[in-house]
Design a protein around this nucleic acid. Structure first.
Ligand SMILES: Nc1ncnc2c1ncn2[C@@H]1O[C@H](COP(=O)(O)O)[C@@H](O)[C@H]1O
Ligand SMILES: Nc1ncnc2c1ncn2[C@@H]1O[C@H](COP(=O)(O)O)[C@@H](O)[C@H]1O
Ligand SMILES: [Zn+2]
Ligand SMILES: [Zn+2]
Lengths: 307, 307
DNA sequence: TATTCCGATAGTGAC
DNA sequence: GTCACTATCGGAATGAG
């Protein structure tokens, strides 16, 4: 995983066409004369747009297909890795500090709705295994980005560097897991101890990572979101962005296979997206006021990265 | 009536206060924990705003009172004229090329709703007479501003200047009215004719002037709008501006006294304001799309002023 | 149906 | 619940030594 920051403003051109004839009367109550009296509108009712022939709609929704088809054609800042069954990319519009997408390449599953695709148990098994792999990777990337701010990591580093006693840093939990690929290659200070009965474990970065699918994806190809939970990113711009990752709209991969009666199957209708905005970290309720949530998340991020 | 263009951007300062506690939950469904878990919001619920003590609300609504009380303290660009019974001003936010307000000074009527105030027949008589006076003045001001573009006026001027035959210009209607205070002081060309059986009457500018009150005024002091009907002005900024002058929401002074059963008495509730936007000149319906109406009015104005 | 600022909401277009 | 753009809609403040 190399750098990221895939930031590029898409330039769009547009032509403003004035002069129309009859608007779709939202709450029509125009009298019949109006139409006859309207000489100004040069009357070019834009071809009644035959639904179905919208190339761009198809193209935009199918954008993830390009990564699946030609993963090797992208730089490391876009495609993180790929193998026979999966392509892993940085989300082009990350909604959190680290936001990746796991794209299964299986043509038999790629165009299915995630709920359906993940009913295939064998396939689900592969996906879950790859998700675990990716989760470790993402946790490592998060540590690479934010580790320098972490007090928990600092405690561990201090002990490893011999700058502090094991008793100075407050022990978070018992040391158990081992996702600490710190590259302390011999540059440890001189007075390192031999017996370290309570080396601080460092921050559990993996606990900050979420893995799931959207109940109603917009992009056509099957993809699993693997992202940090901070929701701190310039691309996180509106309520749906936030709620799509902080309500049951995001279905954890661990919850699959979904029971046929699962409530997330039926309630696809906007319900989750319309929920009040609630801070994932402290539970503060912001109603519909996205801007205030956004500002709040900025401050939460500053505290969170220092944990 | 001197110049106008009372254009001045009001400067406002504002202070953004972050950090709030509990939003008014639009569609509240936050659990009880949220409140307890919210340590971040520094909890300064802005003083629950005691309703009634809003000095600025009162002041803004009463702003027209200053003209009535001290008309002499304003320049001619603001107060057009004043006498014992009336003050006439340029609307500070004109919604058309020429937009004036007739302010009756009578304390017995000034704070009444216009429907009520104009039930006093003697008072109504004075108002109607003054409105007619003002209407002529406004028509003259409109001619001063736009006369140079008018083909109808040009026809008349051409004949008066001897530049054209009376038969060249197409006769609009029979010459009858006489609101033409053209200042053709002796600079007429040499070959002016004596007998002019069909001198073009010039444009009927008074026909472009509307005089009326709003069914539900916002400003507290009684005022009658006297304005050109073009709705072409930078201050004409949203739907309510337009519909307040182009629906029955504007009640013509000539319609007074209003019958007790008049439909405009009862339907004060937003009905008129919510109507589709319809061009006053050609009847084109723009639904809710104010911007398109605005652009359309720009083009209508170019044609209209050349009539 | 005062103005102004700001932000939430809604529709569109994307070759 | 693609993004990006525009515009509509909606509430809150408007004061001041
Ligand atoms: N061209 C693209 N390349 C990479 N990611 C994309 C692209 N377009 C959209 N996305 C992301 O794809 C995800 C689709 O979300 P969803 O379909 O709701 O699960 C969003 O997080 C987008 O930011
Ligand atoms: N301070 C002011 N001086 C002059 N006209 C004003 C002022 N404030 C508002 N107006 C105008 O007063 C009119 C009041 O409209 P209404 O109460 O709806 O009949 C509007 O046309 C405003 O533009
Ligand atoms: Zn919070
Ligand atoms: Zn028109």
């Amino acid at each position: 995983m190399a750098d990221s920051d895939s930031e590029e403003g898409l330039t769009r051109e547009e032509m403003q066409q004035q002069e129309e004839v009859e608007p779709p009367p939202k709450r029509a109550k125009q009298d019949a004369f109006a139409k006859l009296m309207a000489p100004k509108p040069k009357s070019i009712p834009p071809p009644p747009k035959p639904p179905g022939s919208r190339p761009h709609l198809f193209k935009n929704r199918m954008a993830l297909g390009a990564y699946i088809a030609n993963p090797e054609s992208y730089p490391a800042s876009v495609v993180i890795y790929h193998n026979a069954d999966f392509v892993v990319i940085h989300d082009k519009f990350p909604k959190a500090t680290v936001h990746t997408l796991l794209l299964p390449r299986s043509p038999r599953h790629s165009l299915l709705h995630p709920f359906e695709a993940l009913e295939d148990e064998q396939f689900l098994g592969k996906v879950k295994a790859e998700v675990e792999k990716l989760k470790v990777l993402v946790a490592g990337e998060l540590q690479r980005r934010l580790g320098a701010f972490s007090r928990a990591d600092a405690s561990r580093e201090a002990v490893l560097n011999g700058e502090a006693d094991v008793l100075e840093g407050k022990v978070d939990e018992a040391t158990e897991d081992g996702q600490d690929q710190d590259q302390d290659h011999g540059k440890g200070k001189s007075n390192r101890r031999n017996k370290e009965p309570a080396l601080p474990s460092g921050r559990d970065w993996a606990a900050e990572i979420k893995c799931g699918v959207h109940a109603v994806p917009s992009m056509g190809h099957l993809h699993i979101h693997v992202l940090s939970r901070d929701m701190h990113s310039p691309a996180m711009k509106h309520r749906k962005h936030y709620n799509s990752f902080n309500t049951p709209f995001l279905v954890d991969v661990a919850d699959f296979p979904l029971e046929s009666s699962d409530f997330r199957r039926s309630s696809k209708d906007e319900g989750f997206m319309r929920r009040d905005l609630v801070c994932w970290r402290c539970g503060a309720n912001f109603g519909n006021r996205f801007k205030e949530l956004k500002d709040h998340l900025e401050r939460e991020f500053e505290e969170w990265k220092r944990e």
